[in-house]
Protein backbone atom coordinates (compact mmCIF):
# COMPACT_ATOMS: atom_id res chain seq x y z
CA UNK A 1 0.00 0.00 0.00
CA UNK A 2 1.32 3.42 -0.91
CA UNK A 3 2.10 5.85 1.83
CA UNK A 4 0.08 9.05 2.00
CA UNK A 5 1.87 12.30 1.14
CA UNK A 6 0.04 14.04 3.91
CA UNK A 7 -1.41 12.31 6.90
CA UNK A 8 -3.45 14.37 9.32
CA UNK A 9 -4.06 12.53 12.57
CA UNK A 10 -6.48 13.76 15.22
CA UNK A 11 -5.75 17.38 14.42
CA UNK A 12 -7.43 20.02 16.54
CA UNK A 13 -7.20 23.78 16.15
CA UNK A 14 -8.44 26.37 18.63
CA UNK A 15 -9.10 30.06 18.31
CA UNK A 16 -8.31 31.68 21.62
CA UNK A 17 -10.88 34.24 22.76
CA UNK A 18 -11.32 36.15 25.99
CA UNK A 19 -13.80 33.47 27.01
CA UNK A 20 -11.39 30.62 26.39
CA UNK A 21 -10.44 28.56 23.36
CA UNK A 22 -13.01 27.82 20.67
CA UNK A 23 -12.41 24.65 18.71
CA UNK A 24 -12.40 25.30 14.97
CA UNK A 25 -11.05 21.90 13.92
CA UNK A 26 -12.09 19.09 16.20
CA UNK A 27 -10.10 15.88 16.12
CA UNK A 28 -9.90 15.50 12.36
CA UNK A 29 -7.99 12.72 10.61
CA UNK A 30 -7.51 12.34 6.89
CA UNK A 31 -4.87 11.27 4.38
CA UNK A 32 -3.86 12.68 1.02
CA UNK A 33 -2.37 10.03 -1.26
CA UNK A 34 0.33 10.71 -3.87
CA UNK A 35 -1.14 12.10 -7.07
CA UNK A 36 -4.58 12.38 -5.57
CA UNK A 37 -7.00 15.30 -5.67
CA UNK A 38 -8.73 15.43 -2.33
CA UNK A 39 -11.68 17.79 -2.21
CA UNK A 40 -12.63 19.44 1.07
CA UNK A 41 -16.23 20.62 1.18
CA UNK A 42 -18.34 22.28 3.82
CA UNK A 43 -20.34 25.36 4.62
CA UNK A 44 -18.71 28.68 5.49
CA UNK A 45 -17.18 28.45 8.93
CA UNK A 46 -16.99 24.65 8.95
CA UNK A 47 -13.21 24.73 9.17
CA UNK A 48 -12.05 24.17 5.60
CA UNK A 49 -9.68 27.10 5.33
CA UNK A 50 -8.58 26.70 8.94
CA UNK A 51 -7.55 23.14 8.12
CA UNK A 52 -5.55 24.25 5.08
CA UNK A 53 -3.77 27.00 6.94
CA UNK A 54 -3.13 24.78 9.94
CA UNK A 55 -1.31 22.32 7.69
CA UNK A 56 0.94 25.11 6.44
CA UNK A 57 1.19 26.46 10.01
CA UNK A 58 0.24 29.89 8.70
CA UNK A 59 -2.83 30.50 10.85
CA UNK A 60 -2.62 33.96 12.37
CA UNK A 61 -3.29 34.82 16.00
CA UNK A 62 -5.52 34.04 17.84
CA UNK A 63 -5.19 30.51 16.45
CA UNK A 64 -3.27 27.71 18.11
CA UNK A 65 -2.94 24.08 17.07
CA UNK A 66 -4.15 22.19 20.09
CA UNK A 67 -3.51 18.58 19.29
CA UNK A 68 -2.71 15.86 16.81
CA UNK A 69 -0.05 15.21 14.22
CA UNK A 70 0.44 16.37 10.64
CA UNK A 71 2.81 14.00 8.88
CA UNK A 72 4.11 15.29 5.57
CA UNK A 73 6.82 13.35 3.77
CA UNK A 74 7.80 11.64 7.03
CA UNK A 75 8.09 14.89 8.97
CA UNK A 76 5.66 15.99 11.65
CA UNK A 77 4.89 19.57 10.68
CA UNK A 78 3.80 20.31 14.24
CA UNK A 79 7.29 19.49 15.54
CA UNK A 80 9.22 21.63 13.06
CA UNK A 81 10.81 24.93 14.01
CA UNK A 82 10.56 28.11 11.94
CA UNK A 83 13.55 27.27 9.78
CA UNK A 84 12.33 23.75 9.14
CA UNK A 85 8.94 25.09 8.11
CA UNK A 86 10.49 27.75 5.93
CA UNK A 87 12.45 25.16 4.01
CA UNK A 88 9.36 23.05 3.47
CA UNK A 89 6.88 25.77 2.58
CA UNK A 90 6.54 26.37 -1.12
CA UNK A 91 9.31 23.91 -2.01
CA UNK A 92 7.40 20.81 -0.92
CA UNK A 93 3.95 22.21 -0.25
CA UNK A 94 2.38 25.34 -1.63
CA UNK A 95 -0.96 27.04 -1.57
CA UNK A 96 -3.20 29.04 -3.86
CA UNK A 97 -5.37 31.39 -1.89
CA UNK A 98 -8.85 32.52 -2.74
CA UNK A 99 -7.42 35.98 -3.13
CA UNK A 100 -4.13 34.90 -4.71
CA UNK A 101 -4.83 37.45 -7.40
CA UNK A 102 -4.52 40.16 -4.76
CA UNK A 103 -1.32 38.72 -3.34
CA UNK A 104 0.73 39.95 -6.29
CA UNK A 105 2.96 42.91 -5.67
CA UNK A 106 1.60 45.81 -7.76
CA UNK A 107 4.99 47.35 -8.51
CA UNK A 108 6.98 44.24 -9.42
CA UNK A 109 6.38 42.41 -12.70
CA UNK A 110 4.85 38.96 -12.41
CA UNK A 111 7.91 37.36 -13.97
CA UNK A 112 10.17 38.91 -11.40
CA UNK A 113 7.93 37.63 -8.62
CA UNK A 114 8.16 34.10 -9.93
CA UNK A 115 11.92 34.44 -10.43
CA UNK A 116 12.33 35.81 -6.90
CA UNK A 117 10.42 32.88 -5.45
CA UNK A 118 12.62 30.42 -7.28
CA UNK A 119 15.84 32.15 -6.33
CA UNK A 120 14.94 32.06 -2.65
CA UNK A 121 14.69 28.29 -2.64
CA UNK A 122 16.92 27.04 -5.46
CA UNK A 123 20.32 27.84 -6.91
CA UNK A 124 18.93 28.78 -10.29
CA UNK A 125 20.60 31.78 -11.86
CA UNK A 126 18.47 34.61 -13.17
CA UNK A 127 18.22 33.49 -16.78
CA UNK A 128 17.41 29.89 -15.85
CA UNK A 129 14.75 31.09 -13.47
CA UNK A 130 13.34 33.42 -16.10
CA UNK A 131 13.12 30.66 -18.68
CA UNK A 132 11.29 28.54 -16.22
CA UNK A 133 8.96 31.40 -15.33
CA UNK A 134 8.01 31.75 -19.03
CA UNK A 135 7.44 28.02 -19.18
CA UNK A 136 5.28 28.10 -16.04
CA UNK A 137 3.15 30.97 -17.32
CA UNK A 138 2.54 29.14 -20.57
CA UNK A 139 1.63 26.05 -18.60
CA UNK A 140 -1.16 27.91 -16.81
CA UNK A 141 -2.35 29.48 -20.04
CA UNK A 142 -0.69 32.89 -20.03
CA UNK A 143 1.38 33.81 -23.12
CA UNK A 144 5.06 33.85 -22.18
CA UNK A 145 5.55 37.37 -23.50
CA UNK A 146 3.38 38.66 -20.66
CA UNK A 147 6.18 37.89 -18.24
CA UNK A 148 7.04 41.57 -17.79
CA UNK A 149 3.44 42.59 -17.17
CA UNK A 150 2.38 44.00 -13.85
CA UNK A 151 -0.60 42.78 -11.88
CA UNK A 152 -2.85 45.67 -12.90
CA UNK A 153 -2.39 44.81 -16.58
CA UNK A 154 -3.92 41.37 -16.11
CA UNK A 155 -7.51 40.29 -15.60
CA UNK A 156 -8.63 38.58 -12.42
CA UNK A 157 -8.54 35.17 -14.04
CA UNK A 158 -5.03 35.75 -15.36
CA UNK A 159 -3.80 36.94 -11.98
CA UNK A 160 -5.26 33.86 -10.38
CA UNK A 161 -3.37 31.80 -12.96
CA UNK A 162 -0.18 33.62 -11.99
CA UNK A 163 -0.94 32.58 -8.42
CA UNK A 164 -1.17 28.99 -9.57
CA UNK A 165 2.07 29.29 -11.57
CA UNK A 166 3.72 30.64 -8.42
CA UNK A 167 2.42 27.72 -6.41
CA UNK A 168 3.81 25.25 -8.94
CA UNK A 169 7.16 26.89 -9.62
CA UNK A 170 9.15 24.75 -7.16
CA UNK A 171 7.41 21.51 -8.07
CA UNK A 172 5.89 20.84 -4.66
CA UNK A 173 4.45 17.44 -3.89
CA UNK A 174 1.34 18.95 -2.33
CA UNK A 175 -0.61 21.97 -3.54
CA UNK A 176 -3.43 23.29 -1.39
CA UNK A 177 -6.05 25.17 -3.38
CA UNK A 178 -8.20 27.26 -1.07
CA UNK A 179 -11.25 28.21 -3.11
CA UNK A 180 -8.98 29.18 -6.01
CA UNK A 181 -11.84 30.02 -8.34
CA UNK A 182 -14.52 31.42 -6.05
CA UNK A 183 -13.84 35.00 -7.13
CA UNK A 184 -13.98 34.11 -10.82
CA UNK A 185 -16.84 33.54 -13.23
CA UNK A 186 -17.86 29.99 -14.09
CA UNK A 187 -16.29 29.93 -17.53
CA UNK A 188 -12.86 30.93 -16.25
CA UNK A 189 -13.38 28.65 -13.28
CA UNK A 190 -13.97 25.66 -15.53
CA UNK A 191 -10.91 26.50 -17.61
CA UNK A 192 -8.66 26.90 -14.62
CA UNK A 193 -9.86 23.74 -12.92
CA UNK A 194 -9.33 21.87 -16.16
CA UNK A 195 -5.80 23.21 -16.33
CA UNK A 196 -5.08 22.28 -12.74
CA UNK A 197 -6.29 18.77 -13.40
CA UNK A 198 -4.16 18.55 -16.53
CA UNK A 199 -1.08 19.87 -14.76
CA UNK A 200 -1.69 17.50 -11.92
CA UNK A 201 -1.83 14.60 -14.37
CA UNK A 202 1.40 15.76 -15.98
CA UNK A 203 3.40 16.65 -12.89
CA UNK A 204 1.90 14.17 -10.44
CA UNK A 205 1.55 16.40 -7.39
CA UNK A 206 -1.19 15.89 -4.82
CA UNK A 207 -3.91 18.44 -4.42
CA UNK A 208 -6.06 19.43 -1.52
CA UNK A 209 -8.90 21.33 -3.09
CA UNK A 210 -11.17 23.42 -0.93
CA UNK A 211 -14.48 24.77 -2.14
CA UNK A 212 -18.09 25.08 -1.11
CA UNK A 213 -19.20 24.12 -4.60
CA UNK A 214 -19.83 20.43 -4.01
CA UNK A 215 -20.96 19.71 -7.54
CA UNK A 216 -17.77 21.11 -9.04
CA UNK A 217 -15.70 19.33 -6.45
CA UNK A 218 -17.24 15.96 -7.24
CA UNK A 219 -16.27 16.45 -10.89
CA UNK A 220 -12.68 17.37 -10.16
CA UNK A 221 -11.70 15.35 -7.11
CA UNK A 222 -10.71 11.73 -6.62
CA UNK A 223 -11.93 11.74 -3.04
CA UNK A 224 -13.99 14.22 -1.08
CA UNK A 225 -13.99 15.13 2.61
CA UNK A 226 -17.14 16.78 3.94
CA UNK A 227 -16.80 19.02 6.97
CA UNK A 228 -19.55 20.07 9.32
CA UNK A 229 -19.08 22.34 12.32
CA UNK A 230 -15.34 21.75 12.74
CA UNK A 231 -15.61 17.98 12.34
CA UNK A 232 -15.15 15.60 9.46
CA UNK A 233 -18.60 14.23 8.65
CA UNK A 234 -17.72 11.94 5.78
CA UNK A 235 -14.80 11.19 3.52
CA UNK A 236 -14.89 8.94 0.52
CA UNK A 237 -14.29 8.46 -3.21
CA UNK A 238 -16.01 11.18 -5.22
CA UNK A 239 -18.10 8.78 -7.22
CA UNK A 240 -19.14 6.71 -4.21
CA UNK A 241 -20.01 9.83 -2.30
CA UNK A 242 -22.14 11.21 -5.08
CA UNK A 243 -24.03 8.02 -5.83
CA UNK A 244 -24.24 6.66 -2.35
CA UNK A 245 -23.71 9.28 0.36
CA UNK A 246 -23.81 7.75 3.82
CA UNK A 247 -23.86 10.66 6.24
CA UNK A 248 -27.22 12.45 6.43
CA UNK A 249 -25.41 15.76 6.09
CA UNK A 250 -23.72 14.68 2.85
CA UNK A 251 -27.07 13.45 1.61
CA UNK A 252 -28.67 16.76 2.46
CA UNK A 253 -25.83 18.71 0.89
CA UNK A 254 -26.13 16.79 -2.38
CA UNK A 255 -29.89 17.29 -2.46
CA UNK A 256 -29.42 21.01 -1.93
CA UNK A 257 -27.56 21.49 -5.21
CA UNK A 258 -29.63 22.04 -8.31
CA UNK A 259 -28.93 19.86 -11.29
CA UNK A 260 -29.09 21.05 -14.88
CA UNK A 261 -30.09 17.60 -16.15
CA UNK A 262 -33.57 17.56 -17.73
CA UNK A 263 -36.33 16.38 -15.42
CA UNK A 264 -34.11 16.78 -12.41
CA UNK A 265 -35.62 16.96 -8.93
CA UNK A 266 -35.98 20.33 -7.27
CA UNK A 267 -33.25 21.12 -4.76
CA UNK A 268 -34.12 20.68 -1.11
CA UNK A 269 -32.42 22.66 1.60
CA UNK A 270 -31.28 21.38 4.94
CA UNK A 271 -33.46 23.04 7.58
CA UNK A 272 -31.78 25.27 10.13
CA UNK A 273 -28.31 26.77 9.96
CA UNK A 274 -24.83 25.67 11.05
CA UNK A 275 -24.26 25.85 14.80
CA UNK A 276 -22.08 28.34 16.59
CA UNK A 277 -18.77 26.83 17.57
CA UNK A 278 -18.89 28.82 20.78
CA UNK A 279 -21.56 26.43 22.04
CA UNK A 280 -21.81 23.49 19.66
CA UNK A 281 -24.66 20.96 20.04
CA UNK A 282 -23.97 17.95 22.22
CA UNK A 283 -23.26 14.55 20.73
CA UNK A 284 -23.35 14.65 16.96
CA UNK A 285 -23.21 18.28 15.91
CA UNK A 286 -25.58 17.71 13.05
CA UNK A 287 -28.38 16.21 15.15
CA UNK A 288 -30.54 19.37 15.52
CA UNK A 289 -30.85 19.53 11.72
CA UNK A 290 -30.79 15.85 10.92
CA UNK A 291 -33.87 14.16 9.48
CA UNK A 292 -32.87 10.68 10.66
CA UNK A 293 -32.00 11.48 14.24
CA UNK A 294 -31.95 8.67 16.84
CA UNK A 295 -31.57 8.77 20.63
CA UNK A 296 -27.81 8.41 20.67
CA UNK A 297 -27.31 11.44 18.44
CA UNK A 298 -27.73 14.05 21.15
CA UNK A 299 -25.89 11.92 23.73
CA UNK A 300 -22.50 10.88 22.40
CA UNK A 301 -20.15 11.90 19.66
CA UNK A 302 -20.39 9.38 16.82
CA UNK A 303 -17.23 7.43 16.16
CA UNK A 304 -15.63 7.11 12.78
CA UNK A 305 -16.97 4.13 10.89
CA UNK A 306 -15.10 2.65 7.95
CA UNK A 307 -17.42 2.04 5.03
CA UNK A 308 -15.03 0.71 2.42
CA UNK A 309 -11.65 1.55 0.95
CA UNK A 310 -10.95 5.21 1.67
CA UNK A 311 -14.55 5.79 2.74
CA UNK A 312 -15.53 6.65 6.31
CA UNK A 313 -18.16 8.67 8.14
CA UNK A 314 -18.98 9.80 11.64
CA UNK A 315 -22.63 8.91 12.20
CA UNK A 316 -24.51 6.85 14.78
CA UNK A 317 -26.76 5.30 12.15
CA UNK A 318 -23.74 3.85 10.38
CA UNK A 319 -21.94 2.62 13.46
CA UNK A 320 -25.15 0.87 14.59
CA UNK A 321 -25.57 -0.79 11.24
CA UNK A 322 -22.04 -2.07 11.11
CA UNK A 323 -22.34 -3.01 14.75
CA UNK A 324 -25.42 -5.10 13.90
CA UNK A 325 -23.75 -6.66 10.90
CA UNK A 326 -20.74 -7.99 12.76
Amino acid sequence: MTKPVLSIQNLSVDYVTDDGPVRAIDNVSLDVMPGEILGVAGESGSGKTTLAKAIMRILQPPAVISGGRVLFEDKDLLQLDEEGLRRLRWTRMSMVFQSAMDALNPVISIGEQIVDTMKVHTDFNSSQARDRAVHLLEMVGIPGDRIDSHAHQLSGGMRQRVGIALALCLEPSLVILDEPTTALDVVVEKEILGEIKELQNKLGFSVMFITHDLERMLQVSDRVAVFYAARLAEIGPAKGLRDNPQHPYTQGLLKAFPSIAPGARTPESIPGSPPSLLSPPSGCRFHPRCSQVVDACSQTRPIRTDLGPGHAAECHLLSQETGAAT
Binding site: V13, D14, K53, I58, Q60, V64, I65, E82, L85
Partner: peptide, 13 residues
Protein backbone atom coordinates in the same frame (compact mmCIF):
# COMPACT_ATOMS: atom_id res chain seq x y z
CA UNK B 1 4.44 27.99 28.46
CA UNK B 2 4.57 28.28 24.70
CA UNK B 3 6.42 30.92 22.77
CA UNK B 4 4.48 33.19 20.43
CA UNK B 5 6.00 32.26 17.08
CA UNK B 6 5.51 33.49 13.58
CA UNK B 7 4.16 30.11 12.54
CA UNK B 8 1.00 28.88 14.22
CA UNK B 9 2.07 27.68 17.68
CA UNK B 10 1.28 24.18 18.85
CA UNK B 11 -0.18 23.98 22.33
CA UNK B 12 -1.13 20.48 23.40
CA UNK B 13 -3.46 20.60 26.36
Amino acid sequence: KTEATHSTPVVIT
